[in-house]
Design a binder for these strands. Structure first.
Ligand SMILES: [Mn+2]
Ligand SMILES: [Mn+2]
Ligand SMILES: [Zn+2]
Ligand SMILES: [Zn+2]
Lengths: 164, 164
DNA sequence: CATCAGATTAAAATAATTCTAAACTTGACA
DNA sequence: TGTCAAGTTTAGAATTATTTTAATCTGATG
């Protein structure tokens, strides 16, 4: 067994953080940031991508499914088809703006928090909460199979209501 | 942050191990073991449950989906409907004979290895391989949210073909 | 402004899984 | 050993999340 301490989540985004500037995330933010993010990712800033990016990145760290984001959009009077929401989430993911989290074999969650971190998963409610990367230590790992490279180490702490 | 070292996989089976006796797993095994396992789990030993249990537990540790087990059954000339395979897998799971692993949000894997352990996941092929529990150390964990109890800690090491 | 590659979308298709309801089995027990 | 209720199996329909299709738009560029 090798004592290599492997960092969770191999690929890190290009140093971009959701709200990188002074003021705390407010409502009517300038579009320029989001615009730059999309451009930086090589994605055309279309009406729906801009709106979805705003919903995704303007309000701190979020864990959500396509359906959730779609509902969010409707509430915000943003007209986007569910297909576009799926497309956009996958594009953002490929572009390194979102993480995909596997905790439930029935739905796919996306995470706007791109920093190294892990998760608590509340089985009952289907909610996720972050565990900062420095609060978990995957100390030892066996040698990775030959010819393979670790793309990521995911730690999921499944919790449920404590009972008697 | 609490320094509680939490053991992965909370609930452990009743000390039963797949091949608990001397001889290495062979083909034409006595049914008695399987029969006892089902009885012990409070499940009626029906023809299909016996056959599926044999396929599942007679050949060492396995990670499989319902479709895979169904295919296995067909190959072995065991006639079982896919619905029964699903039912059986869930029943075995509830009875503590199988583990459910979440690594792919599109299919559900079941694991015949009930010991404390973690997994390598080969994204390309969808294959899983075990990492013995004592070869991973989840050293530190933040305090579990109030009123919650850890039901399990899953570590998934995602690997892919090493490239240039 | 014309052009067109790329984007959006309604609707159909797919895939994994669950449900339904009818037709069997199993395990008592007389 | 025959009977029967409870538990099981199954074909097929239904459900759900997601992807695909193909037609229609729209953003960028000259
Ligand atoms: Mn995906
Ligand atoms: Mn299940
Ligand atoms: Zn997260
Ligand atoms: Zn395993």
């Amino acid at each position: 067994m090798t004592r290599t301490s492997i960092t969770p989540s191999g690929i890190t985004p290009s140093g971009i953080t959701p709200s990188d500037d002074a003021a705390p995330a407010a409502e009517g933010r300038p579009f320029s940031q989001i615009l730059d993010r999309l451009r930086g990712a090589g994605l055309r800033p279309t009406r729906q991508r801009m709106a979805l990016a705003k919903l995704l990145f303007d309000g701190g760290d979020r864990h959500l499914t396509a359906e959730m984001l779609h509902a969010d959009a409707q509430s915000a009077n943003v007209r986007v088809s569910l297909a576009t929401v799926y497309n956009t989430l996958h594009q953002f993911h490929r572009a390194g703006l979102l993480r995909e989290i596997v905790v439930d074999s029935q739905r796919t969650y996306f995470d706007t928090n791109m920093s190294d971190h892990h998760h608590f998963y509340f089985d009952e409610t289907g909610e996720l909460s972050d565990i900062p990367g420095d609060q978990v230590e995957v100390a030892a790992l066996p040698p990775v199979p030959d010819g393979m490279a670790v793309s990521r180490v995911d730690v999921v702490v499944r919790v449920r209501p404590a009972d008697a």
